[in-house]
Design a binder for these strands. Structure first.
Lengths: 249, 249
DNA sequence: ATTTAAAACTTGTTATAACAAGTGAAGTCA
DNA sequence: TGACTTCACTTGTTATAACAAGTTTTAAAT
């Protein structure tokens, strides 16, 4: 029979207690939690409740489950993106942290972008075409970031082969498209189906989004977003008082 | 009887289709989805599957549920934090966007901070005390951000009443603690129990974290984190080429 | 007419049950 | 020995059922 419940649901109670056990070191990072059947035995509740409790922990990023294997405490060492000069944005940064960076191209094709993107890139109304590139950044062989970028057609056509194998900004820099300004928005979301497959994370996993537009001679050249695993990445900012007077516009 | 399932689970199929309906405008922001019983009728599946499908949408931030009322499509208009001068960090920023800012103090007390914080604030080893402040920032009367900050004891003692009612940085500035540099990390997580109560969001809701340390004359004065609702806030950055040569250190 | 109480919605929690499917170890056959 | 199969163990999906608890509408009582 279904039992009554008061203020705090059972599944929450259980997940909070396991949470405490993880924090206190009863389960170290990488360790395997007891199997569902053992937890059912231990807590004397139904499987649905245990599963809900574990789902809570997964949602909080403390635990990751693998079908057929078990539930494991996640170990988080975050990769730091430094928000200073956009050109050194990634490669040097990651190299300094001893992280191997590789790249996998998913899509590279001319498309008609959505209205907002057409406006941002100032595409001609009679032929609003741009190259759409999707690529996955792998850090230490694991997918960590999806990059979805719209590129001006002349650039995309000219640099296709290089853009497919390298980071965008350095390649532009190499070919006389000097990036002088980047406007960016940092936000967070949860993984949808497409992203969860690209990044190998469960649906709803927290993700960091870096939406950017890069300018050369006050002309937008690329616009897109980089979506990183929130459990593995973060952004670093240095705000200096003097920057206030200098970058006023 | 339980039916077989192939690659794509039913609940995912359903949530993706509802997702499409939301995107295509069948359900506008703020609109109410059909009730669970109607969706069960519509899709000819069990309640547990419909609930799982809706849970997926909630997890992705597309839908919010209210017991006794229903499930509603969320309407997102994000508040923008500009990462330029830390002093104007919030108040001016939000005022420009026509957003009313108010503040609710939760905690203000002297504590012995954790080891990492002691080191960052360079507290004396024989008496490692600092003020711990927790406050909630409300934008347009709704809780949007939790601020958890450790403050040097002399500052906390002197400015207690003012810090309880105002933003931290402007108050410090007013009293000869000129903030010259802020080191910050931006990351994202999902809401745990404490944060979900403070911010009035479901467990696992995506959150933006701004971890910062502020310096006066190369001395750390405050260290803490601001945790904002990921569905309502984002950070804006302007990366300018010239900034590279100037802020080298 | 206003207030109160009941009823009819809604979503939230929990239990039991069965089958699907990934993983790894033990055992079988060549 | 080596490749294959089988089995036991794991988590994943779905169904049915009952009760808890907010919310709104309706009906009753004053």
């Amino acid at each position: 029979m279904a039992k009554s419940y008061k203020q705090i649901p059972l599944h929450l109670n259980i997940s909070e207690q396991i949470h405490q056990q993880i924090i206190s070191g009863d389960y170290l990072p990488g360790a395997k939690l007891p199997s569902e059947s053992k937890l059912i035995e231990q807590w004397q509740v139904s499987r649905i409740t245990i599963r809900r409790a574990i789902a809570n922990l997964v949602q909080q990023g403390l635990v990751a489950t693998h079908q057929g294997k078990g539930a494991f405490v996640t170990q988080k060492r975050k990769v730091i993106y430094t928000l200073s000069n956009p050109l050194t944005f990634l490669e040097d940064d990651l190299a300094n942290q001893g992280i191997e960076l590789s790249l996998k191209n998913i899509t590279f094709e001319p498309v008609t972008p959505p209205k907002e993107v057409q406006a941002i890139l100032q595409l001609p109304l009679d032929n609003p075409t741009a190259y759409l590139q999707k690529k996955i950044l792998l850090t230490d062989q694991e997918p960590g970031c999806v990059d979805i970028t719209y590129i001006l057609p002349e650039i995309g056509y000219q640099l296709e082969s290089e853009l497919k194998q390298n980071m965008t900004f350095p390649i532009l820099e190499l070919h006389n498209w000097k990036i002088e300004r980047v406007k960016a928005i940092i936000e967070c979301t949860n993984a949808n189906l497409e992203l969860s497959e690209y990044l190998d994370v469960p649906l709803g996993h927290p993700l960091l989004v870096y939406r950017h537009t890069a300018y050369t001679h006050n002309r937008p050249v690329v616009h897109g977003k980089s979506i990183s695993r929130g459990d593995r990445f973060c952004y670093s900012v240095n705000q200096v008082e003097t920057a206030f007077q200098q970058n006023q516009d």
